[in-house]
């Protein structure tokens, strides 16, 4: 598969990365090069092969239902570009 400028723009939008037209144009061939290269995997017969789910055999451990975290608003907000009245503040969202 290969992508054109519009598709690159769409992906950039999904990824929330602003791109100028020039950047988009520059990325199209790079993108296609990489896609073409990874598409070698098409050669591999994977019929009946399960996708890998765990790198190393291991069990998902579950936590006990204990409140032992939170209550650290200062830490949570400490690095915020904009915090007001105990909230994070962002440009107004219209729903």
């Amino acid at each position: 598969m290969s992508v054109n400028a519009d598709q690159v723009r769409h992906v950039a939008k999904l990824a929330r990365i602003a791109m100028s037209d020039a950047e988009v144009e520059k990325m199209v061939p790079e993108f296609n090069n990489i896609l073409k290269w990874v598409e070698q995997l098409g050669e591999v017969d994977t019929d009946g092969v399960e996708p890998l789910t765990a790198v190393i055999d291991n069990e998902l451990r579950l936590r006990d239902d204990v409140v032992n975290d939170g209550d650290c608003r200062d830490d949570v907000l400490k690095n915020a570009p904009e915090a007001q009245h105990g909230f994070f503040a962002v440009p107004k969202v219209i729903e």
Binding site: M1, V3, V8, V11, A12, L14, A15, I17, M27, F31, I34, L35, V38, L41, G42, V44, T46, V49, E50, P51, L52
Partner: peptide
Amino acid sequence: MIGTYVLSAGFYDAYFTKAQKVRTL
């Protein structure tokens, strides 16, 4: 960008699932 693309609708199986299968191999 590449990562977003290979997970996006219509491409997920062709790229990501395929890669996870090859990873099994």
